[in-house]
Design a binder for these strands. Sequence first.
DNA 1: CCCCCCATGTAACATGTTACATGATTGA
DNA 2: TCAATCATGTAACATGTTACATGGGGGG
Lengths: 207, 207
Amino acid sequence: MYSTPRTVMVRTMTAPSLTPLGYALLGLVRQKPRSGYDLRRLFESTPMAYFSSSPGAIYPALGRLERGGLVVGKVDHRQPLRPRRVYEITPKGFAALRAWVTKPVTHEGLVRREGEVDLRFAFLGGVGGPAASRRFLESLAAEIDAEVMSLEQHLAAMRATATLHGRLALESGIEVYRARARWARRALRHFEREASPRGGRRRGRKP
Amino acid sequence: MYSTPRTVMVRTMTAPSLTPLGYALLGLVRQKPRSGYDLRRLFESTPMAYFSSSPGAIYPALGRLERGGLVVGKVDHRQPLRPRRVYEITPKGFAALRAWVTKPVTHEGLVRREGEVDLRFAFLGGVGGPAASRRFLESLAAEIDAEVMSLEQHLAAMRATATLHGRLALESGIEVYRARARWARRALRHFEREASPRGGRRRGRKP
DNA sequence: CCCCCCATGTAACATGTTACATGATTGA
DNA sequence: TCAATCATGTAACATGTTACATGGGGGG
């Protein structure tokens, strides 16, 4: 039914494969050191509200990142209030973030896990150069095109049988993907100017 | 931090509040009686692939629906193969589905829980009349407009400070919402023709 | 005196993921 | 006999949700 991998031996030593929340925290901590409370407010007051600001999600997730060696927490006593634990990213954490952010967009990543693509792109600025952005946007546009074609075939096939609402819902999905493809191709132009492989101005790499 | 409801006494006897998967199964079983295996194939081979086809998700979820009295499973021995459990929706299940599908779109439902809105609309055809579709699409368009305005304010506020990638990611989100609003207003026209409160042709209500 | 803000955490619970188990029939 | 298809299920595990706990400082 679902693809059953025959190879079970590999046991990739590397990627511990975080949850979306884990990567979100990692990417935000890379931008600048932040406490759990900082992150909670961020999830409350910005478009990142896709993630829950609940302490029962964030504090355990930060603990996992720290146990995995991807961030380190340092206690900050300077405030008169209760001491804060401020987290910074480690080289290992930076490597994990870059690996996640720079991998090409897949069908799976586009269709399941909503929001992941945008999040990866938003963090790409800090960890990859313009070439990485180009690769990302090109693979995104290609995956979207494939998905749109697949959805259009479905729409044509169901045209006779399905209900009005079913067809309309599918058309909504198609148009959302079309809008994203247009955005990807427009964004691509921002990175094509600086196409020289090593020259030109480049964006910062590390914080 | 998050809104703490003061009223704890209510304990609404009614809505057991299913997960998205629970509602998806309920809506599909309403269309016609289906087995767990039917539903798995559906999640594999259609744009509903947003949901996992894994048996470890679907069979327990069907069991919960049945224990809650929202569906009933009947064993089908007609096939020469292993007997199938075919589920049908109950009146209670139909009521729960209609309650979920007809409630107005909220900010929460639009921004968190991706895909919920489209799913609710797709199922609305079977359980509500054109007036319900109109109400749904109008509340959806209004919520999207509000969200777009909020995102645009954020974009303007971050214009100076944020990175190129952050701004572009936000623009992607805005354009996706705009595409959805255009769709909602176009879909609305499908239901405004038959605007007479009780007359005109009407869509089927029950299976 | 009480409540709100800052700030961190934990416990119980429900759910989805991954992997495994079972079992009959059909076709190579 | 082996593999594939039909068809249902369970067990271990990680994670998010909800609600509760704690504790100091400032303002009305």
